[in-house]
């Protein structure tokens, strides 16, 4: 039996005093870990140190995709190791990386081809989709992956880009696809195409970018560069801030000389 005093490295895991110990399996080896821990903390508790396969620990970076089964249950489950709490009899497989096909879209922005044709030429393998739905069931973010592939197939890049927006590129769908599609890469290309070609351009952003290019802010930056740390701190603390719940376009700073 592991002692709860044993090295709790990494992110300072302190299990509750009366926590029960439950068995989990890492690479087939059984470990007893306190319940209530997330998979990543449980593995660290068991003595593993993560150099890869662990990132933000906040469920956003997609580095800690995990497949697991519960002993005696035929289903294969997925989750992010930093978000999923260990259960008794969990058999784990970390998938920090899985080979995915990233088509060369260097010329993405200069190409004159419409986005739907662009996706069809970059990733023709999407047409091999058999709509088995495995990707959707796999996605730890609950995205309807099969649906966005279906949308790309019919050329609706904008809708597909929206559907895939929550993707964190963990790659678990890629692992499971029987048609060898790298869904997350297709969706990434589609989101880029949608952003550059399909979404209406904001006039405000365009004008501001123009001002930046014309060097409007160079003198201000230079001035900041010459200030010492204390002075910087002071102007940072005393800066005017937009109230949290103000309506868009309603609030304006008193000092408008920097706009």
């Amino acid at each position: 039996m592991l002692n709860e005093q044993i090295a709790m490295v990494g992110d300072r895991t302190i299990p509750p005093k009366d926590a029960r110990f439950i068995p989990i399996f890492i690479m087939g080896q059984e470990y007893k870990v306190p319940e209530t821990l997330t998979i990543i903390k449980a593995m660290e508790y068991a003595g593993y140190q993560f150099k890869r396969g662990c990132g933000c620990r906040g469920g956003i970076c997609g580095a800690c995709g995990t497949f697991y089964r519960i002993q005696g249950d035929h289903n294969l489950y997925t989750g992010l190791a930093c978000q999923t709490v260990v259960q008794s009899g969990m058999v784990l497989a970390q998938i920090p990386f899985f080979p995915a096909n990233r088509a060369d879209h260097v010329d993405l922005h200069v190409a004159k081809m419409p986005p739907d044709e662009r996706i069809a030429t970059l990733y023709p393998e999407i047409f091999k989709c058999v709509a088995c739905g495995t990707c959707t069931r796999t996605c730890p973010m609950g995205i309807d992956v099969m649906n966005y592939i279906a949308l790309f197939k019919r050329g609706d890049i904008l809708e597909g880009a929206k559907e895939s927006f929550d993707c964190i590129m963990c790659g678990l769908c890629v692992v499971r696809c029987p048609a060898n599609i790298s869904q997350m890469k297709v969706a990434m290309a589609a989101r880029r195409l949608a952003a550059t070609q399909l979404v209406p351009r904001s006039e405000v952003t365009k004008n501001r970018a123009q001002l930046v290019r014309e060097g409007r802010y160079e003198p201000m930056l230079e001035k900041l560069g010459q200030m010492d740390t204390e002075a910087l701190k002071e102007i940072y603390v005393s800066r005017e801030r937009e109230p949290n719940l103000s309506e868009p376009g309603e609030w304006m700073p008193q000092d408008q000389s920097h706009l």
Binding site: D144, M146, A150
Partner: peptide
């Protein structure tokens, strides 16, 4: 005299 409504969610039929 009839209106064709797309079904809500659909994928390629194969």
């Amino acid at each position: 005299g009839f209106e064709m409504h797309d079904i809500e969610k659909w994928n390629c039929c194969g």
